[in-house]
Simulated scan of single mutants.
Amino acid sequence: MTQSTPSTGVGASRGFAVFLVVCGALGLAASAVLTVDKIRLLQNPNYTPSCNINPVISCGSVMRTAQAEVFGFPNSLLGLAAFGALLAIGAGLLAGATYRRWFWLGLQLGTVLGLGFTCWLIYQALYEIGALCPYCMVVWAVVLPLCWYTTLHNLRRLTGRYHWVVPALWYLGIALLILNRFWYYWRTLL
């Protein structure tokens, strides 16, 4: 359970701290691979990223779009910073750190903004770009649970019996959207 004292702030359960470390590490690894591949693509426009598997699962197709650089630089650089910070926050919590309420609210805001951006990117990948990037999908898989469990942490409701339902529905929804959007391709594999 979370620990709180007026002078030191709010800590977190060991489970939530480990969760932040794992999600931060997964997101950071995916962002690092995307960043390296983007650099290679900038150096050599003929470079083919290792995650170009077929016409649907194709990082290169995604990396070459304007959506991959929404703020004028590769989106993966945002991931390096954000997931690196989450990894550090989780490690700090594992070491016994506590944070003031404003810090937790800032983390909440960051995860909500990250979720909004991720939803937009999912839409772009599915319906505008028409291709999927496996490393981007790792980020998709991490961001919603991060937002959800940060919300539960801030509401002090991490022990709810059905806390897993929202992430499970998220994964199911994304899987159904992918299946539906690319059904024309999947059925050729049957």
Rank of each mutant, 00 (worst) to 15 (best):
L121M: 13
M63E: 08
L146A: 03
A97N: 14
A85E: 01
N75R: 08
A91W: 14
R161K: 15
F117W: 15
A85F: 15
L155E: 11
A88D: 01
R157K: 12
R100D: 13
G114W: 09
A82L: 15
Y149E: 06
Y162V: 08
R157Q: 12
H163S: 11
G90T: 04
L121G: 02
A66F: 14
A97E: 05
I122D: 07
G114L: 07
I89F: 13
L107V: 12
G116F: 06
L113R: 08
L105G: 01
L94G: 06
A85I: 15
G106L: 12
A81F: 15
W148M: 00
L155M: 06
F73L: 07
L80K: 08
G114P: 07
H163Y: 10
L86S: 13
G92L: 02
L93A: 04
T118K: 01
A91Y: 07
A68L: 02
T98R: 15
L126A: 10
E69G: 10
A85L: 15
L158H: 12
L115C: 09
V138L: 07
V70Y: 09
Y127M: 06
A95T: 04
R156D: 12
G130N: 07
G130D: 05
T159P: 00
H163P: 03
A125K: 01
A66H: 10
L94K: 08
A141L: 14
G72A: 06
A81H: 00
G92E: 02
L78E: 01
A131M: 00
R157C: 09
T111K: 04
L78G: 11
A82S: 14
V138I: 15
F71G: 07
C136E: 05
L121K: 05
L126V: 03
L158S: 11
E69N: 13
C136S: 09
V138T: 14
F83W: 15
I89Y: 13
R64D: 11
L87K: 01
A125R: 04
R64I: 13
C119D: 03
P145E: 11
T98F: 03
I129K: 04
A82R: 01
I129E: 10
V139G: 08
L107N: 11
G79A: 10
M137K: 00
F117C: 05
A91V: 09
Y127K: 00
L115G: 08
V139D: 01
L80C: 11
A68K: 09
G79V: 09
L78V: 12
L109M: 12
C133P: 06
C119Y: 11
A88S: 07
Y99I: 06
L93I: 04
H153Q: 14
L107H: 00
R156T: 03
T150E: 01
E128Y: 02
V143I: 13
V112M: 07
L109N: 11
G79I: 10
P134I: 00
A125I: 04
L93D: 09
